[in-house]
Simulated assay, not measured.
Amino acid sequence: MPQDASPPFPNPSFQAAGSAGLPPAAGGGADDGMIAGIRSVLAECGGLAVDAGRLAVDDDLYAAGLTSHGCVGLMLGLEEQFDVEFPEKLLNRRTFESIAAIRDAVRGLIDGGEA
């Protein structure tokens, strides 16, 4: 995906502090595939007001349009995509606040059964 100088959101308030509106840096290794999978599920199930491909990993997904209804769809899509099940203790706003938070939760579920 080519990068340009334009911010991913029409309103700068959608950007998380420090993200500068840029997609994640290259070189993430195994994380790249997981992040791509998360972005795919976000685009399909998240109901975001912006293109999931333009979000930086630390951008606030709620500021980008994620609602409680979208969060449920996102969780179900992630469970299917990664063959995991989110335990009740992870069903909170913090788990789904950013692509990075989702990546960490999913990685924890895959690696140890729970994050």
Results as ranks from 00 to 15, higher is better:
91 L>Y: 02
67 T>Q: 12
22 L>N: 04
35 I>F: 10
90 L>A: 09
83 D>H: 05
12 P>Q: 12
61 L>P: 07
65 G>T: 02
88 E>M: 13
22 L>A: 01
70 G>K: 12
87 P>K: 08
103 R>K: 14
74 L>F: 08
31 D>N: 14
100 A>N: 02
70 G>C: 15
101 A>C: 00
77 G>M: 07
101 A>P: 03
109 L>W: 03
39 R>C: 11
28 G>R: 05
56 A>H: 04
44 E>R: 05
59 D>A: 01
31 D>G: 01
29 G>T: 08
9 F>Y: 13
90 L>S: 11
71 C>P: 01
68 S>D: 08
92 N>S: 14
82 F>W: 11
31 D>R: 15
102 I>L: 02
22 L>G: 00
46 G>H: 06
36 A>G: 08
48 L>R: 04
51 D>V: 02
60 D>C: 11
102 I>K: 02
93 R>C: 00
60 D>K: 04
8 P>H: 01
85 E>T: 10
26 A>N: 04
63 A>W: 05
58 D>P: 08
67 T>L: 01
115 A>M: 15
66 L>F: 01
49 A>G: 02
99 I>H: 05
28 G>E: 13
96 F>T: 05
83 D>K: 01
75 M>C: 06
42 L>C: 08
61 L>Q: 05
76 L>P: 08
62 Y>I: 07
17 A>R: 14
77 G>H: 04
